[in-house]
């Protein structure tokens, strides 16, 4: 069997004294789109931050392999060099730099000639950025900043892209447009790990999915499998299975997976 691109084995991550990830295992196949769903505080961002090395001395336990190489506990700069891109929650663009400068910063590890090539590619995905290339990033709208953040991560020509809640704070129309483009980027060959609260949109473009609750995976599988799961339907997709007796819900349906 071909080696998965990213293989996370049983990691435990602490925030100070709080155990945020309680034994997470996850593997990502080359060329796939994997969605990690969960509510606020479940630990989704923590997974990404742990893998990319932003949390000091974490993971406490477990190991992470990228393309067969052990990247557990390595420095962010080295991990990013190996080909993982990260689009953080909340965009985190460089507010006082122009769009173009943001992109050039993203291409820091490449020489400027090849960076310019990549910029052209990026403009094809997000033409609005080309229009605004001299504008200061802090003045862009939320959606445009999100596009900038994604483009900036693409500048490094990663093989694996982490997207942390790209739909956050965007209007539904914009979310649709954005996810169309993300889907296109994935089809063009990029492996994507998508962390989202918006389960519907995420599952629409993903191949595999994991559901995270309180630092543990409670469900995983192909997207078809997940869509069929009644618990997923009720708690993450908003599809109610049955009306209760008096047309009001007396008690919440119990989750069956614990």
């Amino acid at each position: 069997m071909k080696q998965p691109m990213l293989n996370i084995k049983n990691i435990e991550t602490y925030y100070d004294r709080i155990l945020a990830l309680k034994g997470i295992s996850l593997s990502i196949e080359n060329g796939s789109v994997t969605a990690v769903l969960g509510n606020n505080g479940a630990g989704k961002t923590t997974i990404l931050q742990t893998v990319i090395g932003l949390l000091d001395d974490q993971p406490e336990k477990g190991s992470i392999f990228f393309q067969g190489r052990d990247i557990t506990g390595k420095e962010t700069v080295d991990i990013v060099k190996m080909g993982i891109g990260y689009v953080p929650e909340g965009r985190e663009v460089f507010q006082e730099l122009s769009v173009l400068e943001n992109l050039m910063a993203g291409g820091y590890m490449h020489n400027s000639a090849s960076a310019k090539e990549t910029i052209e590619k990026v403009y094809r995905y997000f033409p609005v950025l080309k229009e605004r290339q001299k504008q200061m990033a802090g003045t862009l709208s939320g959606g445009e900043q999100q596009m900038l953040a994604i483009s900036r991560a693409l500048m490094n020509r990663p093989q694996l892209l982490f997207l942390d809640e790209p739909s956050l704070g965007l209007s539904p129309l914009l979310v649709d447009q954005l996810f169309d483009i993300i889907h296109q980027i994935a089809k063009d060959g990029l492996t994507v790990l998508l962390v989202e609260q918006n389960a519907n949109k995420a599952l629409a473009i993903a191949d595999y999915g994991y559901i995270l609750e309180n630092g543990r995976f409670v469900a995983s599988g192909t997207v078809e499998q997940l869509k069929r799961d009644e618990d997923v339907q009720e708690f993450y997709l908003g599809i109610k299975a049955e009306e209760s007796v008096r047309a009001t819900q007396r008690y919440k349906r119990k989750r069956r997976w614990n």
Partner: peptide, 24 residues
């Protein structure tokens, strides 16, 4: 210069700089 860009980026957002491969 590239160094200047790296300095400005690091000043504005150290985490974002790191994930772009800038040795902050």
């Amino acid at each position: 210069t590239k160094l200047g860009l790296a300095i400005k980026a690091t000043q504005q957002n150290e985490t974002a700089a790191k994930i772009n491969g800038i040795p902050t």
